[in-house]
Design a protein around this nucleic acid. Structure first.
Lengths: 351, 351
DNA sequence: TTGTATGCGTTATCAC
DNA sequence: GTGATAACGCATACAA
């Protein structure tokens, strides 16, 4: 590799002069400056940023720890992070925890990632969750300044999430506005707190509309297509079946659509369905699914922005929540007049 | 930040001794060793890997340049790359070109990413394409050892791709096996070479089966859902319509399904459809879509493996192609007996 | 077994 | 305006 000494020799000057023309840190006569510039080009010199960091004690990399890069939420967040740090001259080092590959949270992998990041003198870390869950159990392992994106931690941590309550409320309100009075709910795993926030948002809209939510209409899912399919079949075969179903993610909403097909229910004429996440499957489904868009890119952008402000000593809000937005497509329609007389066959048979 | 001097002082030894116990490079008496270990713990010392790299002239980071991290193919590839390099003690620096955000290829962003990588003495680069296309136009910008994943470059470059010809052939063969004789094809953009490879694979299967592919049955798409929908409507309203359609990606296959619904054609009873990519929308569609799985994780893994072997001087194959695999789901059935009498209505109306 | 001293590629301080 | 030279944190050859 070619060093500053090489170009100094080539240009017939000292390394100090070379350094000065590169960094414009002192006045250099035009004549010598151009000699140096020539040598720079000819030798194709690229400064060793590690030596520079070592000398100046200014490190400019940040670490991104992703719980699962293949989760739908992660790429847009990382995208935004990269865009922001590119602009600000930081290098991003990526670590993937691959939490979907392990039955339980792999602390060892996190530890080694953290070690790597500390050894390379990362200024700070953005921890990108994969399921909006709480990660306070691993919080103590992280020494570096950190902001948590798409997950929650302790109250004294910087977290960037989205407003689950309002989003779920919007979903229910849309359904109510379309005349639905019997609305089913297929939730995600109840052991995650944000699921309860969504339930509360949903309930709030129902209360506002003076509607009741029969206990049998709220079914606990586990985010999976398969379980959602079963539950939708159960919901749809009830004597007073719901005329609309809110599923807490898009794959589960797709399962509702499949179940509706099995029950010979048309969407949205006989049954309305609304999803969550705005994943691509919601756009490509037939009919396309009305859903809630999570501002993933904005979450990443705000996380990056917040980390940099933290590092420069600014005070920032600990818990920042971004609003979701309703993406209206074709799976929600007006409530049918006599919904419970719709034909129900084969409910329970998987396609 | 705490340095080796701090721990040496704390332990009452020299920095050489500290270095020796850390790296086990020389024998150290148990007594002093434990003193050092204690100091290490107490001070929470973590070595500065930059200083180490500088001294030993051994750099251990590799760069990943992604054309578009939000493209469906990229996360699994990066996942594999991270997994492999984690294991081998390399740090991965991520750069995202965000090519979907720019009307044309942003050379400036690539240049600056390359500069950053060279400055930080990355050993090599994995370039992750976003659309299997050819990237030889930017090849000359890259000085570092590089392997191209999910894209093609020049013959003298290391590329890891997948076998388009065989994959398309498998798709057609499945359809043929199910008795289809009139098979429609909705292609991707014809300006990409691999699309032609797929067409050739498709044709090869047709020829093997002594079937002809009427020119009107092959329609040039642009990968988009919208155009595919229109083309599927056109295909399905032909007097002797195809009984099966092969769309070159899953979103386009979803569009075919939507068009079939509009034409009151049942899938797979009246029409079979097969997609490509095995994206999540194919699994969540109703009916779920038979498609071709691209071994993305394996592509990333092989790319990482190949780069490391390159760096250690081994000779590796320049162009490595991995096979795709058929994922059979519910959108392909036996050819209908009298397909061209199926009712066709509203063809052309977008849902 | 342990310590001293040198240099990796920079920047920065200080003479000249 | 320019050039020696020290120092950043570390590994290591060599001296003790």
């Amino acid at each position: 590799m070619i060093t500053i000494h090489d170009v100094a020799e080539r240009a017939g000057v000292s390394i100090a002069t070379v350094s000065n023309v590169i960094n414009k840190t002192k006045k250099v006569s035009p004549a010598t400056a151009s000699k140096v510039q020539d040598a720079l080009k000819e030798l194709n010199y690229v400064p060793n940023s590690m030596a520079k960091s070592l000398k100046t004690n200014t490190y400019n990399s940040i670490g991104v720890i992703a719980e699962e890069i293949s989760s739908f939420n992660t790429p847009p967040i990382i995208d935004a992070i990269c865009a922001y740090f590119d602009l600000h001259g930081y290098t991003v080092t990526l670590c993937n925890l691959r939490s979907y590959s392990h039955s339980e949270y792999d602390t060892a992998l996190l530890r080694s990632s953290l070690n790597l990041l500390e050894a390379s003198r990362a200024r700070g870390i953005i921890y990108v969750g994969a399921n909006s869950g709480n990660v306070s159990h691993i919080r103590h392992l992280i020494q570096l300044p950190v902001v948590f994106a798409y997950c929650t931690a302790s109250p004294e941590d910087h977290t960037i999430t989205y407003d689950n309550f309002s989003a779920a409320k919007m979903a229910a309100q849309l359904l109510v506005r379309r005349g639905h009075r019997r609305i089913g709910l297929i939730t995600g795993s109840l052991d995650q707190e944000f699921v309860h926030q969504r339930i509360m948002g949903f309930r709030a809209a129902m209360v506002d509309a003076r509607l009741t939510l029969p206990p049998s209409f709220i079914t606990a899912g586990d985010w999976s297509y398969e379980l959602s399919y079963e539950q939708a079949c159960r919901l749809l075969s009830m004597p007073d079946r719901p005329t609309a179903i809110f599923a807490m993610n898009d794959p589960m909403a797709c399962a509702v659509i499949a179940a509706a097909h099995q029950c010979h229910l048309r969407i949205p004429e006989d049954l309305s369905v609304i999803g969550f996440d705005d994943r691509s499957c919601s756009a490509y489904s037939y009919p396309s699914i009305t859903t809630l868009h999570i501002p993933l890119y904005d979450i990443g952008d705000l996380a990056a922005r917040s980390l940099l402000r933290m590092l420069s000593g600014e005070k920032i809000d600990m818990d920042q929540q971004l609003p979701c937005s309703l993406v209206e497509r074709n799976s929600v329609g007006d409530a049918p007049d006599v919904p419970n007389t719709a034909p129900i066959k084969n409910a329970g048979e998987l396609s």
